[in-house]
């Protein structure tokens, strides 16, 4: 996938997210004790209940694992399939065990919510393209399923 080599975008978005994090560092958010999160002592990411609505379907409820988060979208693992929900998708995520942020509407998510929930992903610091290839291989897949926008 050519996208994995898109270094210029990598740098640009890194700066955006970095700036977001910079402005929100030490932000006080109401919520639970992070140590009580099931993510704290598990290699898995937070469980996400996804209510997804595609261009020609009503809501469908799935349970998935939060794999990685960015300002452009979220990757979940559902039934051994990596699924990418871009910002703008008609999906609502109920994130279990992520303090402060628990519901994200992907149609118009607050970037701060995405930043807050990112640490509760399985890979909070992300994966490089090589690691993603290997993860797909362990799952017996060769690509990521992308949810279409409405």
């Amino acid at each position: 996938m050519t996208a994995r080599r898109d270094v210029s975008r990598w740098l640009g978005i890194s700066l955006v997210v970095g700036a977001l994090l910079g402005t929100t560092g030490c932000a006080i958010r109401s919520g639970i004790n992070p140590a009580a999160s099931p993510v704290a002592d598990s290699p898995h990411g937070a469980t996400v209940v996804v209510d997804w609505r595609g261009p020609d379907t009503l809501h469908v409820r799935d349970r998935a694992e939060l794999i990685a988060v960015a300002d452009t979208g979220v990757i979940l693992l559902h039934d051994r399939v990596l699924v990418y929900y871009p910002v703008g998708a008609r999906g609502v995520f109920r994130v279990r065990g992520a303090p402060g942020v628990s519901v994200i509407d992907m149609r118009d998510p607050d970037p701060i919510d995405l930043v807050d929930v990112a640490p509760y992903a399985r890979h909070p610091f992300g994966l490089d393209s090589g690691a993603l290839d290997r993860l797909l291989a362990t799952l017996g897949r060769d690509n990521v399923l992308v949810r279409r926008l409405p």
Partner: peptide
């Protein structure tokens, strides 16, 4: 498929920023 690069980079940016996010009543 620029989304993939963006999600990879976006997540990695967390590491670059190395920030401290504090939640009320506890911290991560």
């Amino acid at each position: 498929m620029s989304w993939l690069a963006r999600i990879l980079s976006g997540a990695l940016a967390v590491a670059c920023a190395g920030c401290l996010v504090i939640f009320q009543g506890g911290s991560l």
